[in-house]
Every structure is written in C-alpha cells, then in structure tokens.
Amino acid sequence: MRREHTIADRVTNSSLWRAVVRHGYPDTERNQALIIASNVFLHLHPVKIKRYATKVTYTFCLGGLSFFMFLILVMTGVLLMFYYVPSTTQAYQNMQDIEASVTFGQLMRNMHRYAAHGMVIAVFLHMCRVFYTGSYKPPREFNWVVGVILLFLTFLLSFTGYLLPWDQLAFWAITVGTTMAESAPLLGPKIRFLLVGDNEIGQATLIRFYTLHVIFLPLAAALMMAVHFWRIRKDGGISGPL
C-alpha cells in the first residue's frame, strides 16, 4: 500500500477530486473506458475505435483540425471583442490600438486571422479527404450534406469577419463580394440590401456583419457541428474498408 502515501494519491482520493472525476487513473482498460464515457467533452468519442480510424494517413486529422481552428477562433475572438467596437468611427482606431497598445493584442489578431484562413483550408481539405475515401456513401449521406452546409458557414464566417478591420482591404473586398451577390437573378438586389443594410457599405453593414460574425454564424456552425459529430457516431463511426 505504499502508493496510498503519495501526494498524488491523497489528492485523487480526496472527496473533492472524487466528486469531479469519476474514474481512477487510466492505466486499466476499465478506467480508460470510464474516462471517455464520464467526460462530456471526451464523450464525443466512442470508447473503442477501429484501428484504421486512428491512422493519421487516413484522416490527416483534417476534421479535428477544422474543429481545433474553430476553438482557437472562439477564444481569440472573445478576447478581441473586449477591445473592438463595431462603429465606422471607432473600428479602425480600435484595430490600431489592438496592434499597438493592447498586451498580446497583435498576437491575438494575427492568430485569429491565420486560424480563420486555416479553418477555410482545413474544412475544404477535409471535404476532399472524405470524398476521396468514399466516406460520403450511405449511411453517411446526410452527414455529407451537413458537411457541405458547414463549408458554406465557414465561408460566411470568414467573409463577415473580413469587413471588421474597416480598412481599405476590408471595405473593398466586401464591396466586390456583395456586388457579386447583387447580380443574382431576380433576388439579387434584395439579397445585397439584406447583407449591406443600406445602399452602400457603411455603419449598417458593419453592425450586420459584426452580429453575424460574433453571434449568429458561430452558433449556427456550433449547432451544425454538434449534428455532424453526433452523426459520425450514429452512422457507424469513421468510415473504413468494408
């Protein structure tokens, strides 16, 4: 019983620890199963998984990477929100302040921007991986459609964020983008007005893009991700050779 006397054992045997963590040290298969099953986040996973599904050269971690980028974006995005006011008179100044005087502000902005690019790339490549391994085939056809919706949401998330720095690059990129939407047959001008909120890009556009970017689209994406991850499990786990 020498183990009982280590500090680690005292901590892990305390009633506080036992109240939070419902499993022992995961060096037995029983505890390894419990650690997955009793943790809400780890419970995204099954307890056991097919061996081929853990091969990095099969999935290239791309789905996981997309989710990882999303998490980085949420964290850095929340920090940026503390300093950013979506106003045409303040936004640009806020950006300069974030870069010049906020502690780690430049780092947060850079990470947010690069993770956003990274997420678009990861999601697109993830779609390619799923396609080339034939993983969209029944019973996973609905999850493939959910994935296409998530690709679309990723584009929208990135596009709405692109306006927020309120510099020339942002302003004119969104001008080009919304002009494209305007050319849609029949509904084009209405769609553009819905996006821009005015006849030209200005305060109404900035607040719309901001609200979409920080609340609506992340929630929509999180919802679709929940469905996406849930469906992986329900459709028989990660695809593999028959």
Binding site: E29, Q32, I35, H45, V47, A53
Partner: peptide, 17 residues
C-alpha cells in the same frame, strides 16, 4: 463489458486522444 477489444479495435484513450 467496455473493455472487450475485438482484434481490429483500440481504446480511444490513449490511442486516439
């Protein structure tokens, strides 16, 4: 039993995690 591994299966903890 959650710990009965078929031959082509591995535990998610630690292998995948």
């Amino acid at each position: 039993r959650p710990t009965d591994l078929a031959e082509d299966e591995v535990m998610v903890w630690p292998t995948l995690v």
